[in-house]
Design a protein around this nucleic acid. Sequence first.
RNA 1: GCCCCCUUCGUCUAAUGGUCAGGACGUCAGGUUUUCAACCUGAAAACAGGGGUUCGAUCCCCCUAGGGGGCGCCA
Length: 478
Amino acid sequence: MSEKVITRFAPSPTGYLHIGGARTALFNWLYARHTGGKMLLRIEDTDKARSTEGAILAILDGLRWLELDWDGEPVYQLTRAERHREIAERLLAQGDAYRCYATPEELAAMRELARAEGCPPGYDGTWRHRDPSEAPPGVEPAIRFKAPREGETVIEDRVQGRVMFANKDLDDLVILRSDGTPTYNLSVVVDDHDMDITHVIRGDDHLTNAARQTQIFKALGWATPLYAHVPLIHGPDGAKLSKRHGALGVEAYRAMGYLPAALRNYLVRLGWSHGDAEIMSTEEMIAWFDLDAIGRSAARFDFAKLENLNGHYLRNTPDAEIVARLKTLVPELPDGAALLARIGDDGWRQLERAMPGLKERATTLVELLDNASFLFAKRPLALDEQARRLLDQTARDTLGVLLPRLAAVEPWSAEGLEAAVKGFAEETGRKLGKVAQPLRAALTGASISPGIFDVLAVLGREESLARISDQVHASRSA
RNA sequence: GCCCCCUUCGUCUAAUGGUCAGGACGUCAGGUUUUCAACCUGAAAACAGGGGUUCGAUCCCCCUAGGGGGCGCCA
């Protein structure tokens, strides 16, 4: 087969792009890129009641943020309803489907009865052989697929291996609703065929659907695509991923300050591996990705590992890019507008200058911003508890003595300041830490910050001296 | 209830019919350091249980247990 690989990501727009969907998209994308094929995007919006415009936008946004680009325009399944109907009619004409006049109430009763008797709660095929002339008046029929009763349907899955379903366990599913709209399993088959999809990579919650779809493909005389059903992602407790865990939309991860590259790297290792490789570039991922290396067991979502990876990527991201990302992130934060105003143009410049020290110390963009808050703090600083403890009377006196020496440093640079403070510590017989810690507290209001000499340099002479003298004066008035 | 899938350190995973069962995150202990990180070194930590097959099973087969998914005129 010299045929080009065509994969598709086919989310239903009933919510955001959740983390499982993101990984499915990533796998489809990687496989397409790996093979030099295409990844198409199909929005499965045939459920008009549950599909929303907002969800579609959230999904497209999420994909773009993750930098997973698709080929061509997105296909909206709803626009293809006519074609789906046409195929349903064809199945009807060729005797592979039939009209079913059972009402929803009857079906519900049927399921309940079956459950009570311990049978699979499927459709019992009542209307398979009944003559339409017996139809109750006024009931619009649905069209059901005439699923084979004997034998078995086999799926040769690239991940799950050969999976067999007894046909007797697969009931006659509705392919066209009584209102004339197509249902999922019909739409998928027709679209996958019409879009020339060669590989269907999706969550293994679709495994049973693969069997049903295979039956429809067969009835239509179409070749089935190759299937790869990927195990699902679970929460930290092994149960289904809930909102409490990680079933958040990818935009939530963006808001928590994760980088798309880190998230991609984390997700690709959930269920797939390449030897001992942990951190890999997108190029490496594309080069190495393969369906055969996908595992068959569900994976648990682990924030700790994501954070670690994110810290790694943060440290390796150019300062200017981090600033650019922060600029788009800040407005999305809870008190973003206020923060944005506080930072100002100057703040962004200072932030970039302080970035080398900041990015070493943060694991997410949000944490980084938090660590940098001293840059935009208003005087007098609000000291945190530990800073207050560090700034006792002795420390303040020391700062008072140090102040004029700092004021005399020329030029105002990290190196010069370091020399001055170190010299001061030596002359007064103190450990550098004894001087540096209160200094840090006075400048940042916190005990944790980038290197103190960089802080001095970034804040500038005026601001630094003002902050220190604030604290010195505080001791006099106390 | 029925059908399908899964089971290696706490977590993500690697490898193999004969290995000291490897790596990463996390944890703990040291080191380095002006703080916190980062970084370096080291440690603890796993083949779910029971039967087979075999000279030998973590690996192959069966059963049990546990977990997950599916069983809509949802997708």
